[in-house]
Simulated scan of single mutants.
Amino acid sequence: MTDPAEVLALARTRGVMIATAESCTGGLIIGRLTDVPGSSDAVDRGFVTYSNAAKIQMLGIRPETLDAHGAVSEEIAAEMASGALANSQAGIAVAVTGIAGPGGSEHKPEGRVCFGIADSRGVRTETVEFGPLGRAQVRAATVEHALSLLKAALA
């Protein structure tokens, strides 16, 4: 398990604040980070953008991208991460969008989560297929993976 305190320490060392842009996790990532006492010197803000309208209004996601790729896509994860960086004082942002379940489809199955990381080096994305673990387990796995991506990007 990635220790959120380690992520915060790395952010402090790099002299950057962290922002999150969360859809399927509904704020769980920023919650894990801010559970750590003293996190206010390394955490700037979290955007919980569960609806497409929120993604557009709060993060500047382009409706054309949503139409072309859907909310659960690396393209949207990239725009979410970039939008979080642009609309905050953060130097690094992580974004997540996925299908926690139940449900999904043949093209976008339950357990698929797209991640984005934006910082001074640009934006990187990846998709992880956690599988139909159940809603709580997919969300927990997403939080853990997001924290590990932050840690790796800050190291």
Rank of each mutant, 00 (worst) to 15 (best):
A84Q: 04
Q89C: 14
L85F: 06
A93V: 01
I76R: 01
I76S: 03
V128N: 09
H107I: 11
S82D: 14
I99F: 06
V113H: 11
G83S: 12
G111R: 05
S88F: 09
P109V: 12
E79L: 07
V123M: 00
P102K: 08
E79D: 12
E79V: 04
G111H: 07
P109F: 13
A81C: 10
S82P: 01
V123G: 05
T97K: 02
D119L: 07
T127G: 13
H107P: 05
N87R: 13
V94N: 02
E106R: 15
G104A: 12
C114L: 12
R124C: 12
P109N: 12
A100Q: 02
K108Q: 14
V113M: 11
R112F: 14
M80F: 10
F115L: 03
S105F: 10
P109A: 13
E126T: 13
G91Q: 05
V123E: 05
Q89F: 14
M80A: 11
A118G: 08
V128S: 09
A93G: 04
A84W: 02
T97G: 08
G122T: 07
E106T: 15
A77T: 03
A81G: 04
G98T: 06
A84Y: 05
V123D: 00
F115P: 02
G116C: 10
G122P: 10
F115H: 06
G122L: 08
A81L: 05
E126V: 08
G103C: 02
A118F: 00
E126L: 15
P102I: 12
V128P: 11
R124S: 15
G101I: 01
E110T: 08
G101M: 04
V94H: 03
A118R: 06
A77S: 06
A90K: 00
F115C: 01
H107S: 15
G98D: 05
V123L: 01
S82N: 14
G122M: 07
V128K: 13
G83Y: 09
S88N: 08
T97L: 00
G111Q: 09
T97Y: 07
G116R: 02
I117N: 01
Q89I: 12
L85W: 00
I99D: 00
G122H: 03
V128T: 15
N87I: 09
S120L: 11
P102G: 11
V123A: 04
G104V: 12
P102H: 10
V128Y: 07
P102M: 12
V94R: 02
I92W: 07
V113T: 12
A81Q: 02
T125Y: 08
F115A: 05
S120T: 14
T125I: 13
G101R: 06
A93I: 08
L85I: 08
V123N: 05
R112K: 15
C114R: 09
A86N: 13
S88H: 10
I99R: 00
M80T: 07
V123Q: 02
N87G: 09
G104L: 11
